[in-house]
């Protein structure tokens, strides 16, 4: 629905728009990392685009595409309240140094989303004033939404007590609700 944005981007950035696609009303433009912020700025300020509303920013770990130079795909979704159209800009980043310009000067709302993206994927945003973890804790090692992070590997801040069960096993439902207990978990020393 927003082909006009793609046309304007191609007109303005030429070969730096690597590819575009439109599917099910979603218009996507992939730009080069060098002109990432410039493209976002253009999408926001160009009167024909006028995407003043920042919707979302995150990343995709495309580690199975076989290309270490394009492992991470950072995307931003922007919407124009006046023109009622939406566009998705993407940038592809290499595995060894995933770094791209911050979009905070364009949309101030990008601040926390970039922090989340850093927290979950380890993508760094050049020029971000406060690039810390936002959801996880400072002691956490690694980035859990990367596909090479084992999803169930917890890094507890409080050491687990000994003698606890990993999972509650299913209990017998047909015993009704007598006020007694058949499942004995760890004995409490207190």
């Amino acid at each position: 629905m927003a082909r006009i944005i793609l046309d304007r981007l191609k007109e303005r950035f030429g070969a730096d728009v690597l590819e575009t696609s439109s599917q099910h009303g979603d218009d996507v433009a992939v730009v080069t990392p060098a002109r990432w912020r410039e493209a976002a700025e253009f999408v926001r300020t160009d009167p024909r685009c006028a995407c003043d509303y920042f919707v979302d920013l995150s990343a995709i770990d495309c580690c199975d595409n076989g290309d270490p130079e394009a492992r991470f795909e950072v995307y931003v979704i922007a919407y124009s309240v006046a023109r009622k159209h939406r566009v998705r800009l993407k940038v592809r980043l290499p595995e060894d140094n995933p770094e791209v310009d911050t979009l905070i000067p364009v949309w101030v709302g990008a601040n926390w989303m970039e922090r989340e993206c850093f927290d979950m994927f380890g993508v760094r945003f050049k020029g971000h004033p406060d690039l810390r973890r936002i959801l996880l804790y400072e002691e956490f090692k690694g980035h859990p939404l990367r596909k090479d992070y084992p999803a169930q590997q917890a890094q507890p801040l409080v050491a687990y007590r000994e003698g606890t069960y990993d999972k509650l096993r299913p209990f017998l439902a047909d015993e009704g609700m007598p006020l007694d207990r058949t499942f004995k978990a760890a004995q409490d020393p207190d």
Partner: peptide, 8 residues
């Protein structure tokens, strides 16, 4: 002080 579970 053992752990008890409320049953259905």
């Amino acid at each position: 002080r053992t752990t008890a579970v409320v049953k259905n």
